[in-house]
Structures are given as structure tokens and as C-alpha cells.
């Protein structure tokens, strides 16, 4: 588990550098979703970077397409495309656009407009059922994104078809671009809403990698029901002066801010290295 935790810190450093270099990006939401992505891509999903379109693969849809930097950094780290391309993120002619597209090996669908990913994931899950394929479909949504009515259309369809091969994940960081979600337009009670739509809901600390992996590995808990993992997170997680600040939704770190952020993250890496209590998760194969 320590290796996985180190990976998450390293990816935070990578994505901050990407955003700084590109002078563009979504800092807060990328940092809040890193641990969810790490759990899925390094431990849970059956994928093969040498065969991005392998028919048996698990599917991942980044419905909150703006949190793209961590996603790209992971795909590069896993070998879907050369790491050097990350340096060209958002540059003229790069295939690494500011929201994911299928030009990027490993990306399943072009996203960025909120409220689209779940329906596409539903279609993939229905296709899996039609073809009796065992793959699972994971769709990561933002909490602010749940304001889009199309999310709830898709939620109804998923429940109607009993898609127990579909896992929705909400990055519940409680902030959106204008401020706190509950002040912009109240979302709560989110768990009850999803339950009312026919989904099985599991709450989890979205930064506890061990619990995240455990949660993803145990779903589906109930057959014939889609599952919603409500991942409670902190926007900007990992860097003290970015955490819980709405301004950092798409604020780009300056030279000085980047230096301070990397310093903090390096310190976390060192502390982790010296913390023997995190060595114990034996089943980790990362």
C-alpha cells in the first residue's frame, strides 16, 4: 500500500507540473480525484496498456473530463503513450487536449461537457450484458456535475436494466467553480437520491487508498443493481494552500506556488518512506 500511496503523491507532483507548464488546467478537481484513479488503474481494473482496445477490458469514463491531468499522467505512467508527451499537454498540435479525447490511447470517450459520461457508461454496460462479457464499467463524476439532468436520466436507465456491471463514482469534494455545492445549489441528501433512483450506494473516504481498493473490489454487493461509490474527498487534496479553496478550481500555480507545492509533496513522500506502519498491506502487488 505504501507504493500505491507514493504513486499518488508522485502523480500529484506530475499533474501540478503539467498544469504549470501548460498554463492551463483544473488543479483542485484533479487533486481530489487522484486517489480514486490510482486505486482503479493500479489495483482494480483489468486493463492492458499494450492493447487499449482489448475487448475484455474494464472501461473507465472520466465524466468530469476537466480533471484530466491526473488521468493523462496515469495513462502515460502505465505505458499507454510515452511520458514525454505529458510535457506537450495543451500545446499546439498535441493529442493531449484539456479534456480527454479518444486520440489518447486508453481514453474511451471524448468528455468535458458535464453530464454525458454516465449515459455512455450505461451503453457500455448494456453492451457487456448483451455480449455476456464480464467487464465492468466505471464512471467518475464530479459532485457539481450532478446538477445536469442528463445524469439522472442515465441513472434511471441503469437501474431499469439492473446494471450490476456499472459502478458510478462521485468525487464528493463539496466545491464547484462558484463555491460550496450546498450553497450554489443544494445536492444533499445525495446518497438518498441515488438510492431513490434504484442504485446501491457505498460511502468511502476518497483519499484512503486501502478502503477505496477494498470498496471497488467488493462491488457489486447486490446483483441486478448499479452501484454508486460516494467518495468523500477534499478539493485540492495534498497541498495545504490549495485544499478547499474554490479559487483553485482552475487556478494555475505560479512558479513560486509550484515550488512550495512540490516541497510539501516531497516532504509527504519522505514521511511516508519513514512510516513503517504503512508497510503492512501484504496483498498489494503494485
Amino acid at each position: 500500500m505504501k507504493t500505491l500511496m507514493k504513486k499518488a503523491i508522485q502523480l500529484r507532483m506530475d499533474l501540478l507540473q503539467m498544469i504549470h507548464r501548460a498554463n492551463s488546467g483544473h488543479t483542485g478537481g484533479s487533486l481530489s480525484s487522484v486517489d480514486i484513479l490510482v486505486a482503479l488503474f493500479y489495483r482494480v481494473m483489468r486493463i492492458d496498456p499494450t492493447r487499449p482496445l482489448w475487448e475484455e477490458r474494464d472501461r473507465f469514463v472520466l465524466s468530469k473530463g476537466h480533471s484530466v491531468e491526473g488521468y493523462y499522467a496515469i495513462l502515460a505512467d502505465l505505458g499507454f503513450f510515452p511520458k514525454e508527451e505529458l510535457e506537450r499537454y495543451c500545446r499546439l498540435g498535441s493529442f493531449l487536449t484539456g479534456h480527454p479525447t479518444r486520440k489518447v490511447p486508453g481514453v474511451e470517450v471524448n468528455t468535458g461537457a458535464l453530464g454525458h459520461g454516465l449515459a455512455v457508461g450505461v451503453g457500455m454496460a448494456i453492451a457487456g450484458k448483451m455480449d455476456s462479457k464480464p467487464y465492468k464499467v466505471y464512471v467518475l463524476m464530479g459532485d457539481g456535475e450532478l446538477g445536469e439532468g442528463s445524469v439522472w436520466e442515465a441513472a434511471q436507465v441503469a437501474a431499469h436494466y439492473g446494471l450490476d456491471n456499472l459502478v458510478g463514482i462521485v468525487d464528493r469534494n463539496r466545491l464547484q467553480i462558484s463555491g460550496y455545492t450546498e450553497e450554489v445549489l443544494r445536492l444533499e441528501n445525495l446518497a438518498e437520491k441515488w438510492r431513490a433512483f434504484g442504485w446501491e450506494v457505498v460511502n468511502v473516504d476518497g483519499h484512503d487508498l486501502e478502503r477505496l481498493v477494498g470498496t471497488f473490489e467488493k462491488v457489486p454487493i447486490l446483483a441486478k443493481k448499479p452501484h454508486l461509490v460516494l467518495a468523500h474527498t477534499v478539493k485540492g487534496k495534498g497541498v495545504s494552500f490549495i485544499e478547499n479553496k474554490k479559487e483553485w478550481h482552475h487556478h494555475v500555480p505560479s512558479e513560486e506556488e509550484l515550488r512550495r507545492a512540490l516541497e510539501e509533496l516531497n516532504r509527504q513522500l519522505e514521511e511516508l518512506e519513514n512510516d513503517v506502519s504503512k508497510d503492512g498491506y501484504k496483498t498489494c502487488n503494485c
Binding site: 470517450v109 449515459a119 457500455m124 442515465a154
Partner: peptide, 14 residues
């Protein structure tokens, strides 16, 4: 909206 999204997901699954 769901119809088109679902169809896209089906199409992306061949």
C-alpha cells in the same frame, strides 16, 4: 439525451 449517450456507449462497444 440518455438515448444518444447510451447509443454512443453501445457503439463504442462494437
Amino acid at each position: 439525451q440518455a438515448a444518444i449517450g447510451v447509443a454512443a456507449g453501445l457503439a463504442l462497444s462494437r
